[in-house]
Amino acid sequence: MIGVEIDGRSAQAPEGTTVLLAAAAAGLPLTGNVGCMGQGVCGACRALVRRDGAATAETVLACETRAEDGMRVSFLDRFTLPRQAPYDETALADGWAAYERMLELFPNAQNCRHCSGCDRACPKGLSVQTGVMQATSGDFGAAAETFALCVMCNLCAAACPESIAPNHVGLFARRALAASQRPTDLIRRLHQIVTGAMAVETTP
């Protein structure tokens, strides 16, 4: 058994368990900072942990972090972001205007002070700051690739001193790029359906 301290509560947990399961074992209510319980894709279980003897705390996803003896843990709220300008899918529809729209919607994105806090905060090890640069320079393809495995935990947004919301910038780039996809096979199939050339015979 190992001893951990989570949100003010001391707990014993079996070795090899995750911080999230240790929190459950500690009797803490898992009603906010939890979702997928271990797959590491919902991004809800963001936390600060301080390992025993470590010089600093670090940002992690609790479901993906092994609990260690002497570890101290503080869960971080789902951050209410500085109000982000709303947009709907019509902002993505015109691929030629998407870059302009992004600069309008994310004016702070050009104010990056290159502190690299987002890179350090990212529990997935993405090159967040580079991704923002790629997006603001109009290279949506590169930005889309950089943010491909982003789980939208918002830790970069919370860590950004310029309120850039880097993950949302990256997602805009991804969405704008994707909305211009026109796969040939899909177009053909939709045509067949619209013209009635393809339908389904129901069988009991």
């Binding site: 899918e89 993505l92 991804r174 969405r175 994707a178 909305a179 996809q181």
Partner: peptide, 9 residues
């Protein structure tokens, strides 16, 4: 796709 979802080609 219209909402901006990427599919592999």
């Amino acid at each position: 796709i219209g909402q901006g979802m990427t599919f592999d080609l």
